[in-house]
Amino acid sequence: MSNILEVNNLRVRFRVMSALKARYKGVTDPFIDAVRDASFSIKEAETFTLVGESGSGKSTLALAVAGLLPTAEGTINFAGKEVTTMDRSQMQEYRRNISFIWQNPTGSLSPRQRVSALITEPYIVHGMRDRDLNAEAIRLLKMVGLSAHFADRYPHQLSGGQARRVGVARALALNPKLIIADEPTAGLDVSVQGEILNLLNRLQDDLGVSIFVITHNLNIVRHISNRTAIMYLGRFAEQGFTDDIFESPRHPYTLALLSANPKPNPDADMERIELKGEVPGLMNRPSGCEFHTRCPFSAENCTEVVPPQIDVSDQHTLTCHYPRQENNTLSP
């Protein structure tokens, strides 16, 4: 199957002080890198998951892919077209083909609009007023498992799970090729989480849409995604098939993340890799390997040399000087 989205060496920078202030303070580089050297691709009808803690740059990457943030370097290629150099009308066309599911189920719905207006707005915006919008609203609601009477409700009258379903319905309206889902289960109860994930899985099977999931919830990743990338301070630590990542993680950060996840079993055997300290801010990015300040296995050259990206097996890549051995999680 061909790739629907290809991202190569993407770098997203934010200015942190004005040019004048930077000159006055003698700062030569008044920018921070929120995303650095990100390369990945998403195939048709597959789910790609980006995992990272807060401040790792995962949402920034998603917004850059959607064309909402300017990129500093690198390319974003969607179905053969370059996104970073698109003009206005090409961008409008691109936005017909991608859609977002937002982190905040209720807050991402315009509060003064009824559900029916919200989910049919994509048609109006993209010049498809000719169809019967009421019928479309009911069709979309049905697709996400809501009955027709929800069409007259306002966002604040919906529960978290219902608002999330409306968000999904809205994302589906234009029959997109790619859905970007930022924390699709945030703020939902465990029993409702399952419903939303099953819905996404089912829609993918039925419609063949690709899904790009951004999350920090490791528990859901293995049930929804084909391939996974782990992000730390704007850089991909490890990337590969989800099963490979979960069964034989090689990057120390991936290992720490997976082992930190508490299991719902009081007698679980917890062999933990505990990380020292906290995530450093993007303002003072550590030299060499970004992870060395917290890595339990860091050695001298980790503090100085940026680790290269290495391939360990089929499509399984990582950036580390001392990757862990396969299936032997705690010793190098």
């Binding site: 029993s191 399952g194 994930l197 099953n198 099977d205 528990n219 859901i220 293995r222 049930h223």
Partner: peptide
Amino acid sequence: AMLLKCDPASISTKTRSLPTI
């Protein structure tokens, strides 16, 4: 029992259809 079963963390084998209440 259902709550425990629903938690994706307690499902170790990969599934595309998670249990719900």
